[in-house]
């Protein structure tokens, strides 16, 4: 009798584990680009919280869901392959004029979404960066405003030439010994807008390496709490 009850107990305890998660895996893909309205190119950014955030609100279940956030890659595209099937509201935030949230986005299978925005600044290389005296890299860039909206035309405050030994380079990850940082007070920075502007790296770096350089600038404008940078594309420089 005793033995039987033990066996029963053991069997019951197995039963306790029988429930399993029968919900489908988050297997849908949501990808796309943040595109400059005028140039049709992607908006360059940095990795992480100071870059471009894609906030997703799954509205399939209720009005006030917990937000799910992820961030763009540094070239301004995004690709998330682990999304639950459902209906979402999408809110992109970055160094561009805030756009209306995109409602009722059905995600099932592969969903592509390109968002057109007006970046605060556009930063273009005038020509290829050059190596000077084997110890510095100089580059000519042109910084122009990306929007006609005067509400987002504050004064230019910072210009950077970021340098790093990995292709992940920006305000989030740079070699502070060599990267060049210029700050402007008041309206002084506005004078370089639209001009060909020459910047050179700081200090004397080690030759015989590959560096990745990138120019960036920001204006005195806070979007979603953060004073963000706009970026140029990344250039690879091999120092002999």
């Amino acid at each position: 009798m005793k033995k039987i009850s033990y066996i029963l107990l053991v069997l019951l305890s197995f039963n306790a584990c029988m429930k399993y998660d029968n919900y489908d895996l988050p297997n849908e893909t949501f990808r796309g680009k943040i595109v400059d309205k005028d140039t049709r190119e992607t908006v360059q950014t940095e990795i992480g919280g100071n870059g471009i955030r894609i906030r997703m609100l799954e509205t399939s279940w209720g009005e006030d869901p917990q937000p799910y956030d992820f961030y763009c890659m540094q070239d301004g595209s995004f690709n998330n392959t682990k999304i639950f099937k459902g209906t979402y509201t999408i809110i992109p935030e970055g160094a561009f004029v805030p756009v209306d949230s995109i409602k009722n986005v059905e995600i099932s299978g592969v969903k592509e979404l390109n968002v057109e925005v007006e970046p605060l600044l556009r930063i273009e290389w005038v020509d290829e960066p050059v190596i000077n005296r084997n110890t510095a890299i100089s580059a000519r860039v042109r910084i122009v405003r990306g929007t006609g909206s005067t509400e987002y035309q504050q004064e230019l405050t910072d210009v950077y030439l970021f340098l790093n030994e990995t292709p992940y380079v920006g305000y989030n990850d740079y070699d502070s010994r060599y990267s060049k940082h210029l700050t402007f007070s008041g309206n002084a920075g506005n004078a370089i807008l639209g001009q060909e502007y020459l910047i050179e790296t700081e200090g004397a770096f080690t030759p015989n390496r590959t560096y990745y350089v990138r120019a960036a600038a920001r204006i005195n404008c806070i979007i979603a709490g953060v004073n963000r940078f706009n970026y140029s594309e990344i250039k690879k420089v091999v120092v002999p």
């Binding site: 917990q66 305000y171 502070s176 010994r177 953060v226």
Partner: peptide
């Protein structure tokens, strides 16, 4: 150690804790 400080304007206000938001 060559550490550099970059203050993020985000921090002028703190985040309300997620547990209290919930």
């Amino acid at each position: 150690f060559g550490w550099r400080w970059n203050f993020n304007t985000l921090w002028y206000y703190n985040a309300i804790p997620a547990s209290d938001m919930a």
